[in-house]
Structure formats: structure tokens, C-alpha cells
Design a protein around this nucleic acid. Structure first.
Lengths: 172, 172
DNA sequence: TGGATACTTGACTTTTTTGTAAGGATTGGG
DNA sequence: CCCAATCCTTACAAAAAAGTCAAGTATCCA
């Protein structure tokens, strides 16, 4: 489970735009120098962001890129989607099908259930975090802490006592 | 952000072992056929799991692989670690440093803070989920739901450093 | 003991991802 | 109106990851 280079670097580029006053343009050379990336690479990353409608470009001399919307209206999820796609449960069974047409676990798949929950979680928190949060260093509190005493807060709809016993980490 | 093929397929292989009675061995060919993977590939995946001490091998005729410990003692985290490593915050700044020696955001990095929190979250839930949970389809309740009304439960202001400290999992 | 079974491991090939290159298109200024 | 600055897009090379192969070693059992 990893973050791709494209996601990390692309996010840095758009963060650079989020830090200047809204409406100001920044050209590729400036971003590249500041972030320690090549001009060609930054061009490609901004191309992806631009295509997704997250940024606007101004061509010609004194041109550059700027956010298409205020930083508080652009979410981390949108950015990551533009740069390669956030993990989704649906994509997994088709992505990992081995030599079969469909995933051998199609239907009642134990793994699918977990990935799907993790994916939902990531999706929600990434939707909640905006570029403004990131720029202000205020995103951290938006990521819910893990509740260590899960049995107190999570309704265990499972009826099997065996699984309920497994879930309890610290005992009752 | 994605799950690698090695992680997904390796997890399926060890899940196959988790479903048979503890102590029984399963040979590579059986796993490969059942999961729709090549024998050679399953050999490699089991090699990784075996090297990490999660499985044991029995050589010779009627040999095969089996879990090294009961399924309730092997966590998803251990498996993913053996297969490629779970996302960790520390690895990011060194992994993505552009053309610099260290990440340009070394020090007060807004992104690092978010990735680090996401990584901690994943680490905790993956530590909590065992192969037994997965085999029984009981893992889903172990993944905490996202609290949609975060403003009611999570202090958003950065004013209180206490919240950040409290959220911090083990501090390191 | 010897053949059959099955794990072990490193090298090799293929595929995907990452990053570069190059030429084209658009704009603004002199 | 021309030129330089800048974005735009595709093609391609390099690197990394994924997946295969094959020659080995260990073990079992007759």
C-alpha cells in the first residue's frame, strides 16, 4: 500500500499554487525550482491537474498556473483522483483477477469487504481535507483518531459471539 | 494510493492457508489453481511469507505450506509488511525527495503531517485485523466508521496542542 | 537407496511507472 | 508583426515492479 510519486509530487505542485494569493499565477519554472523537480516533470503534473479542472492556465508571457477555485473548495480527494486515483473497492476485484475473467473471490469476498471499508474511510477523509487545511497545517485534526476501545463505539451488528470475542482487544 | 499486486495476491495465498485446519499443509499447486495464479508466482509469494516467519514449509512428498501460528495470531499488518510494507510516514520524505538530498519539506511539512496520520490509522487497523477475522468475514466491524459530523467530536482548532498530543498514537 | 514430490532461490523477461524530450500552440510586448 | 515567454501534448527512454523460469536442495516413502 503506497502513495505513488505522481500523487506526492503533483500534490506538492498544487499546494504551491494554494499558498499564493488566489488569482495570482505561478509559472512552471518557479514551481520546479522550489520543489526540486524538473521543469518537464512539473509541466506534466500540471497538465494532469489542469485537465481535471483543478487549475487554470494563462498562456503567453507572464502566464502561468493558478487554482481554478479557492483553496478551501479543492479537496485532497479531487487532487489525488486527478493524479492517479484513490483506492476504491470496486476497482480491486477487476484489477486483481489473476488469470480469470473476474476475481476468484467475486461475490462473498472476505478481502473485498475489508478493502472496501478502508477505501471508504480514505475517501471520506480525503473529501474532507481541502488545500486550505493543508496550507494552514490544519488538516491533521480532520483525520479521525482510531478509537482503541472499538467495542464501546462501534455497533457490532454481528451476532456470532465468537467474532465479538475476537474483536475485543482489551477484554471487557 | 494503491494496493500492490504482490500484497493482494500474497494475502490471498495466506488466506488460503488460514481456511484449512491449523497444522494441515497445502501445496503450491493447490493454491495456484484455486486462486487463479501461476505456480511460479505462488512459489515466490509464499517464499516472501515464509521468510517473514508467517508460514512454515514442509518439504518432500505430501509436503506444502501451513501457517506458522494460529490464524488469530497473524495480523493483516504482518502479512502486508512481509509482502511489501505498509505506508509509513517516515518513509515518505526520504522516498520523495525530488532532486534534493532530503525532501524540500523536511521540517514543517504540511503534507507529511497528513500522510503520517493516515499511515498511523492504517497501521492501527491492520494490526487489529487477524487472518481469523478475515476468514470469518468479521473484519469489517474492526474498521472504525468515519464520524461524519467531525466538528462535533473532533476539535478543529489548532489552538489546543493537547488534542494533537492525545491523538498521537505512540509518540515514538 | 533412489525416485518422486515439493520447497528454494537467483536470474531472466515482461509490464508498468516514472521521468525526459521535443515540437506545437498561444499570448503579450516591443 | 515578429519574437520570446509560456503553456500543451504526445512520444519515448529509463527505471522499477511484476511475474516466469529453471536449476537446485531437501524430504519422504517404498
Amino acid at each position: 500500500m503506497k502513495i505513488t510519486a505522481q500523487e506526492e509530487y503533483g500534490l506538492r505542485c498544487i499546494m504551491h499554487l494554494a499558498r499564493v494569493p488566489f488569482g495570482d499565477t505561478v509559472n512552471v519554472r518557479q514551481i520546479a525550482e522550489h520543489e526540486g523537480l524538473s521543469v518537464a516533470y512539473v509541466e506534466k503534473l500540471l497538465y494532469l491537474l489542469n485537465r481535471a479542472g483543478l487549475t487554470e492556465s494563462v498562456r503567453g508571457a507572464q502566464g502561468g498556473y493558478r487554482l481554478a477555485h479557492p483553496a478551501e473548495q479543492i479537496t485532497l480527494r479531487q487532487v489525488l483522483d486527478a493524479l492517479g486515483g484513490v483506492l476504491t473497492a470496486d476497482s480491486l476485484c477487476s484489477q486483481f483477477s489473476g488469470d480469470r475473467e473476474i476475481c476468484v473471490h467475486h461475490g462473498g469476498c472476505e478481502l473485498h469487504s475489508v478493502w472496501s471499508f478502508v477505501a471508504d474511510y480514505l475517501s471520506v477523509i480525503f473529501n474532507r481535507i481541502t488545500l486550505k487545511h493543508l496550507a494552514e497545517g490544519a488538516a491533521r485534526p480532520l483525520v479521525p483518531p482510531v478509537l482503541l476501545r472499538s467495542e464501546q463505539t462501534i455497533p457490532l451488528t454481528e451476532r456470532e459471539p465468537a467474532s465479538a470475542a475476537q474483536i475485543s482487544l482489551e477484554g471487557r
